[in-house]
Design a protein around this nucleic acid. Structure first.
Length: 156
DNA sequence: GCCAACGTTGGC
DNA sequence: GCCAACGTTGGC
């Protein structure tokens, strides 16, 4: 079982939106970066846990936890010429892009800001801190535990 | 809104 | 295959 951090712009799709899903699952589509694609296609598995991060806002912040419920499968939004995420390189035979399904788990009692993460020397190795723009990032078990403790989760 | 970082594209 | 131009991300 592995840990991940998924970035989302809350104006586009927020943790509250995930919570509001009637069936409690959501396809994590629209990722168009090869490194992130490789994680989605090859490494992220059902049961893996995800830090839900809100980016591109005045105070970027980890707001909650989600769980992966379906492993990587073709992101068909790349095939829709009228869609936001259309990619002419993608086809049914060669999907190029992949997505997973996630389910709402729980919010952090105290959301952990990027500022707090940057202020913790134990978290200095996180891609987030190194200013990577990577939208899907692996999280080490130790980092996971620290962030959950910072977030006020009783039994991380 | 600015701009640095960085990923992608395309001419050669 | 190099690398300049360009586009996007995302913190500030």
């Amino acid at each position: 079982m592995n840990y991940w951090l998924f970035k989302s712009e809350p104006g586009c799709f927020s943790f509250t939106d995930l919570k509001a899903r009637p069936d409690m699952t959501e396809p994590w589509d629209g990722v168009r970066n090869y490194q992130a694609r490789n994680f989605l296609r090859d490494e992220i598995k059902p049961g893996d846990l995800v830090l839900f991060y809100h980016s591109n806002i005045p105070e970027p912040v980890v707001v909650g936890i989600a769980e992966v419920v379906r492993e990587g499968y073709p992101d068909v939004t790349a095939l829709d010429p009228n869609g936001q995420h259309f990619d002419p390189k993608a086809s049914r035979d060669n999907p190029v892009w992949y997505m997973v399904d996630v389910r709402y788990c729980q919010p952090l009692p105290r959301p952990v800001t990027l500022e707090q993460i940057k202020g913790n020397p134990l978290l200095a190795a996180m891609p987030l801190v190194k200013r990577s723009r990577l939208s899907i990032q692996p999280i080490a078990p130790g980092e996971w535990r620290i962030i959950l403790i910072m977030g006020g989760v009783e039994q991380p």
